[in-house]
Nucleic acid binder design. Sequence first.
DNA 1: GCTCGTCTAAACCGATCGGTCTAGTATGGC
DNA 2: GCCATACTAGACCGATCGGTTTAGACGAGC
Lengths: 187, 187
Amino acid sequence: MTRTVFEKSDAITLVAEVFRELGYEGASMSNITARTKLSKGSLYHFFPGGKEEMAAEIMANIDAWFVDEMFKPLEEDEPHVAIAGMWQTTDAYFRSGRRICLIGAFALDETRDRFAGAIRGYFYRWIEALSGALTRAGVKTGEANALAEEAVVGIQGALILARALGDDGIFGRTLQKLREQMEARLR
Amino acid sequence: MTRTVFEKSDAITLVAEVFRELGYEGASMSNITARTKLSKGSLYHFFPGGKEEMAAEIMANIDAWFVDEMFKPLEEDEPHVAIAGMWQTTDAYFRSGRRICLIGAFALDETRDRFAGAIRGYFYRWIEALSGALTRAGVKTGEANALAEEAVVGIQGALILARALGDDGIFGRTLQKLREQMEARLR
DNA sequence: GCTCGTCTAAACCGATCGGTCTAGTATGGC
DNA sequence: GCCATACTAGACCGATCGGTTTAGACGAGC
């Protein structure tokens, strides 16, 4: 019997991709084992709590990535630099719209109730961090909140339409437009 | 044995609400029978093709509603009136953000591949109809396309964030802002 | 008031679900 | 070299899945 050895971090990213493609309910254990090549034994070794624990760890993993790569820079770095970085990071992470936002997808179906706290926290912190950076860049609080909200709304909407239309261009166009609108308030 | 009699149109709207809450995979037949009070016998009488036929008919039903209530007015009526009507219809249909867009939700998971044509057509026609109305209202073609795209993107994004944050205000705020941005180009 | 077609109720079906368990294989510490 | 630990493979489990079937309730047409 030969065996392939995985690390838990590999397992998380592999399983995450399956959830991303099939959704929480659509990702059955047999789907997951087939696509990741991880056996049930491995999966339940890494995630004794089953699917729910997988999803929870995946969300925590995504959240941690965003905290490191986007939220902390927005909160700590020079705001103009951090905001410019956010647009790039966003485009790269979502692969110019070819990759969806798992947290956003979870928000839509009944998975939301299961992970309400994590979902809410992710979007809340994104908006807060961006709004804070805008404020530090000299935008008034109310306007900063509105701009930040508008940006995150636009990103999520563009991800839906990119998938729905099969249109590679719409995500980039939306990002570009949101960025211009935001920068117009920074001058 | 007593029995309750349903019409197919009732069945469609009842089942639609279950799909809206649970998603395509999350809506199991037992869920559907429990929530709609329709027995399996009734469901398979109305939809011999099972879940897939239910979803297809529901989408066709939603599409037809939007065509009548929004797309045709946008295509045929006086553009300023039709566009103003669109904002109201949108807010009413999505219950100020408390109701999600089923077509948008289907676009995110693997259900998309099953219904790609219907999903694509729905969003395509929405953007086209709105863009056409803007053009007739005097906006240049390129700008009209961009504005229409931006509006539909914003609506979808706001629906995600309204659910994710459990925030009743964000949908209305987004609609208001999109409307103001659009009207600024109409003067 | 009988009949026929429409519709409902629920038992039933094999397949698949999420999850458990056992029998291992590999590996690092001693 | 041996052992404890970490990990994997896949058979196996009861529950639930989507779907079928059978039996009967009901109203419309005559």
